[in-house]
Simulated scan of single mutants.
Amino acid sequence: MVQQHYQAYKNNSVNTASPGELTLMLYNGCLKFIKYAKKGIEQGDIQLKNTNIQKAQNIINELMVTLDQGAPIAKEMLPLYDYVNHCLIQANIKNDLESLMEANRVVEEFRDTWKEVLKQTRTQQYTQGAKA
């Protein structure tokens, strides 16, 4: 019963999230899967590692595909996403914890920067709304 309510809440939060919030959810999901993959490498659980690295790669691929190519920042972000994907591949093929942690570091930077952008955007919207 609790699981059903939680799933309904999760579905509702995704369905009502702004594009910016969805991007933040993707970054957080990617970090969660990297954490599980790390556990898989540390425990010698190849299935856990492989499954979660693939999930993290799927998120990075989604971020690459949905990147607004017209935005000036896209030219800088695309190679970084590609780099993260490369690190994830290396981590999966070689059970390389260092590559996995490098991917984690870059995604954390993206997430933290994106969180700050969302906070500033909300503050601006709130301030502009209060003036109207």
Score class of each variant (00 low, 15 high):
T23S: 00
V84C: 11
L31M: 09
A74W: 10
G20Y: 00
Q90K: 13
D68A: 08
L78M: 14
C87V: 04
G44P: 00
E21M: 00
K75V: 10
D68E: 12
N104M: 01
K55G: 02
L48T: 04
G29S: 15
Q57H: 11
Q54A: 10
P19W: 01
R105T: 13
I34A: 07
I73V: 15
N58H: 12
I53N: 03
M101E: 15
T66K: 15
L26S: 03
I89W: 09
N92Q: 12
K94L: 14
G29Y: 07
K75T: 11
H86R: 07
G70K: 05
Y83T: 10
P79V: 02
N85V: 03
S18L: 11
Q90T: 11
S18K: 08
Y83P: 01
V65S: 11
N104H: 11
A91K: 02
A56Q: 01
V84G: 08
S99Q: 14
L22E: 04
V84P: 09
I93D: 12
N50D: 14
M64Y: 09
D45V: 03
L78V: 04
L97K: 09
V65Q: 14
L67M: 13
K39T: 14
K35S: 15
K49D: 04
I89D: 05
K32T: 14
L63I: 12
Q47K: 14
I53S: 03
L88A: 05
L80Y: 05
P79R: 05
L97A: 06
V65D: 12
K49M: 11
C87N: 11
C30R: 05
G70M: 03
I73L: 13
K38L: 11
V65P: 01
I89G: 01
I41T: 12
N52E: 12
E102V: 09
N95S: 14
I41H: 11
E102C: 04
N95H: 09
I53E: 02
D45G: 00
P19L: 02
T66Q: 14
L80G: 02
